[in-house]
C-alpha cells in the first residue's frame, strides 16, 4: 500500500448520528401522508361533470362567434342611409306621399320612380 493510501486512511468518516435514521423515517412518513392527501384531493365528485365546469365558457365562445360572424359579414345594409339618399333624390314630400300611397297610384299611371336599393 502506498504512503498516500496510508495517509488517506487516517481520515475516517464518523458514524451517522443515532437520530439520522429516525429523522429520515419521520420525513418519509410525512411525505407519504402528503401524497395520500393530494391524491384524495384530486378525486372528482360523483355528481361533477364536464358541462358544469365548461358550460359557461362554451356559452361565451358561442356568443363571441356569433358576434364575430355578424361583424365580418360582407353584406352591410344600413337602412337609414338608403332612405336618406332616396329622400335627397326624390324630395322629402314626394317620398312621404309615395310611402303614404299617393305615389303608388301615380306609379301605376306610368310614372317611373327609382327608389334605389329599397
Amino acid at each position: 500500500m502506498s504512503n498516500l493510501n496510508n495517509l488517506l486512511d487516517q481520515v475516517k468518516s464518523p458514524e451517522p448520528s443515532d437520530l439520522l435514521k429516525a429523522r429520515i423515517l419521520q420525513q418519509a412518513k410525512a411525505q407519504r401522508a402528503d401524497k395520500t392527501v393530494s391524491e384524495s384531493g384530486s378525486v372528482r365528485a360523483a355528481n361533477d361533470n364536464h358541462w358544469k365546469r365548461w358550460g359557461g365558457l362554451a356559452v361565451l365562445v358561442i356568443i363571441l362567434g356569433a358576434v364575430g360572424i355578424n361583424t365580418l359579414s360582407p353584406v352591410q345594409t344600413n337602412e337609414t342611409e338608403v332612405w336618406a339618399e332616396t329622400a335627397q333624390t326624390m324630395g322629402y314630400e314626394y317620398l312621404y306621399a309615395w310611402v303614404e300611397g299617393d305615389a303608388v297610384e301615380s306609379n301605376e299611371a306610368g310614372a317611373e320612380i327609382e327608389v334605389g336599393n329599397l
Partner: peptide, 23 residues
Amino acid sequence: GEESALAHLMDRHLKTITAIGYY
C-alpha cells in the same frame, strides 16, 4: 411504502452514503 423496508435499507447503506457526503 413500507417504512420497515426503508429502515432495512438504511441499516445496509446509511453509513456508506453518509461517508460520501463526509469525504
